[in-house]
């Protein structure tokens, strides 16, 4: 726990603060010592914990799968290869069921999303104090004040992480729309639906309305994608933190919530993957 005798509020706030590195107007390039300092750093700051864990987990994913891919035999597969093939086939089937265009990217993209998001969500099951306390010990060794060493372990509870992925997907949606339908097709999709009329004048009246509606629809895609994952995991993490504060009774409660959370973790990873496929297939298909 943070500090000597933390209040409930400070404990929770401490747990929800990222380890931020950035340019502070007063202290220059440094690690933020408080939430205020972190927000004063503005946009040009990095959440070291989010990035560190997400990249580490991403590496776990790609290296594990790469190792299996290198040794992939056509004979009887071993345990790990079995697992990897299971994942690959599962993702491949999901993609084939939903996405009817031809693309070399969609399936690996979906696999990466599913596995990476799953691994990042999985960090939620590590008891909330383990890694932050370790980080405080390490921070203290480097001469930092333990009370100000912030460490958020679950990257998907950081809206930057989920929005970063969602915006990448959004870019792909726009890229695929333009590639399949041309730029005029993209604009047409934004302005000629859902209201259309054979009458040119009426159509001209419809265009701003359509544009408004379709733009909101389009923008809602990455926002909902990012906030759904973020919200679910943030709420889950918050409940873990709350459970961690109630003393001995936390053990059965923590177990119960963690068990339930296994479902949430998998489901959210799956939903993120599935929605990505659906959005991209909508981008490719003609209406």
């Amino acid at each position: 726990m943070a500090g000597n005798t933390p209040t409930a509020t400070s404990y929770i706030q401490h747990h929800l603060q990222n380890l931020t590195f950035g340019h502070h107007p007063e202290h220059g390039w440094s690690i933020a010592q408080s939430a205020e300092e972190a927000s004063e750093m503005g946009f040009w700051a990095l959440h070291l914990d989010t990035l560190g864990w997400s990249i580490a987990l991403g590496l776990v994913f790609v290296l594990l799968f790469r190792k299996v891919a290198l040794k992939a035999t056509t004979g009887v597969p071993s345990g790990l290869q079995n697992f990897v093939e299971l994942m690959v086939e599962f993702v491949d089937n999901s993609v084939k069921d939903t996405f009817h265009g031809k693309s070399q990217l969609i399936a690996p993209l979906s696999l990466t999303i599913f596995c990476w998001v799953f691994l990042m969500n999985l960090m939620d099951l590590v008891p909330v104090d383990f890694l932050p306390m370790l980080a405080q010990k390490v921070g203290a060794m480097f001469g930092a004040d333990p009370a100000h060493v912030y460490f958020k372990v679950v990257p998907t509870t950081d809206v930057n992480a989920t929005l970063g992925m969602a915006l990448s997907v959004f870019a792909l949606i726009i890229f695929y729309t333009i590639r399949e339908k041309g730029f005029s097709g993209f604009i047409g999709e934004l302005t000629l639906h859902p209201f259309s009329s054979p009458n040119k004048l009426v159509q001209a009246l419809f265009i701003p309305v359509n544009f408004l509606l379709e733009t909101v629809t389009l923008i809602a895609k990455p926002i909902s994608l990012a906030l759904r994952l973020f919200g679910n995991l943030y709420a889950g993490e918050l409940i873990f933190i709350l459970i961690a504060m109630i003393g001995l009774w936390q053990l059965p409660l923590h177990f119960a919530w963690a068990t339930f959370h296994i479902l949430v973790i998998t489901l959210q990873a799956f939903i993120f993957m599935m929605l990505t496929i659906v959005y991209l297939s909508m981008a490719v298909e003609k209406h």
Partner: peptide, 10 residues
């Protein structure tokens, strides 16, 4: 806060 992490993550 929304910050550079977003781009790093992307």
């Amino acid at each position: 806060n929304l910050n550079l992490t977003l781009i790093g993550q992307a």
